[in-house]
Simulated assay, not measured.
Amino acid sequence: MTDEEVLAEFRAAGALLEGHFILSSGRRSANYLQCARVLMNPERAARLALATVQKMPRELRQEIDVVVSPAMGGIIIGHEIGRALGKDALFLERPEGVFELRRGFALQPGQKVLMVEDVVTTGLSSRQAIEAVAAAGGEVIAEAALVDRSAGEVELGVPFYPLVSINFPVYDADNLPPALAALEPEKPGSRKN
């Protein structure tokens, strides 16, 4: 799938939004990709997951034992990537602010994990999720995501395979362009902080 074909999927789902958005990182943007909306259609979610898997080297795909995703955003795409790989898909939650496996999920010592996110901007959630997997005994060998918003700058400590890389400008809250500052900000993501 080309970058334009991926963006066409977002447009078709009404998931490429324009306005003034507060990202999970706290930074601001005039554009937001609402992955939950693009993934609400199971056939579209399966297509995007398969395209993401196909971006990874075959040797890597063969090493993966299990897929793990951080809740909330990564659950659907993680599940679909698990399906495409023929692997179980677990998810992390942070009921007390720190990622952990719950609901009877567990990793075997040394189990090879593919971390899956919907959108990566600064990589903070991904790094925290990778640490949680290590604490649970697993080894994250790579990360996949639908969207890399970092302009290729994110460092996760493992190979990173986004389906599409998008370089929408992002701003600190105290350094907004006038046109963006004139709009009422929205926080469409799942994180409250």
Results as ranks from 00 to 15, higher is better:
residue 87 K to P: 02
residue 144 A to P: 01
residue 174 D to C: 10
residue 178 P to F: 11
residue 86 G to N: 13
residue 164 V to W: 02
residue 151 A to R: 14
residue 158 V to D: 08
residue 66 V to A: 02
residue 92 L to R: 09
residue 154 V to E: 00
residue 146 L to N: 12
residue 94 R to E: 15
residue 164 V to L: 07
residue 91 F to C: 03
residue 89 A to P: 13
residue 86 G to E: 15
residue 101 L to Y: 07
residue 165 S to N: 03
residue 59 E to K: 06
residue 51 A to D: 15
residue 39 L to K: 02
residue 128 Q to T: 01
residue 62 Q to V: 00
residue 146 L to R: 10
residue 90 L to I: 04
residue 48 L to Q: 08
residue 65 D to V: 04
residue 181 A to H: 13
residue 59 E to V: 05
residue 56 M to D: 05
residue 80 E to A: 04
residue 56 M to N: 05
residue 47 R to F: 02
residue 176 L to R: 03
residue 75 I to H: 15
residue 111 Q to E: 15
residue 118 D to R: 01
residue 67 V to C: 14
residue 162 P to S: 07
residue 127 R to C: 10
residue 61 R to T: 13
residue 69 S to E: 08
residue 68 V to F: 04
residue 50 L to Y: 04
residue 90 L to P: 06
residue 157 G to A: 08
residue 180 L to Q: 15
residue 131 E to N: 09
residue 42 P to H: 13
residue 99 F to V: 00
residue 154 V to R: 02
residue 134 A to T: 12
residue 103 R to V: 06
residue 69 S to C: 05
residue 44 R to H: 00
residue 39 L to Y: 09
residue 119 V to P: 03
residue 119 V to S: 06
residue 128 Q to P: 00
residue 97 G to K: 00
residue 107 L to S: 10
residue 95 P to W: 09
residue 87 K to W: 10
residue 52 T to Y: 14
residue 57 P to S: 10
residue 156 L to A: 09
residue 140 V to K: 07
residue 44 R to V: 13
residue 173 A to R: 15
residue 161 Y to F: 15
residue 152 G to W: 05
residue 49 A to M: 12
residue 96 E to F: 00
residue 174 D to I: 07
residue 153 E to G: 05
residue 62 Q to L: 08
residue 168 F to M: 12
residue 57 P to A: 07
residue 140 V to N: 11
residue 179 A to Q: 15
residue 88 D to T: 13
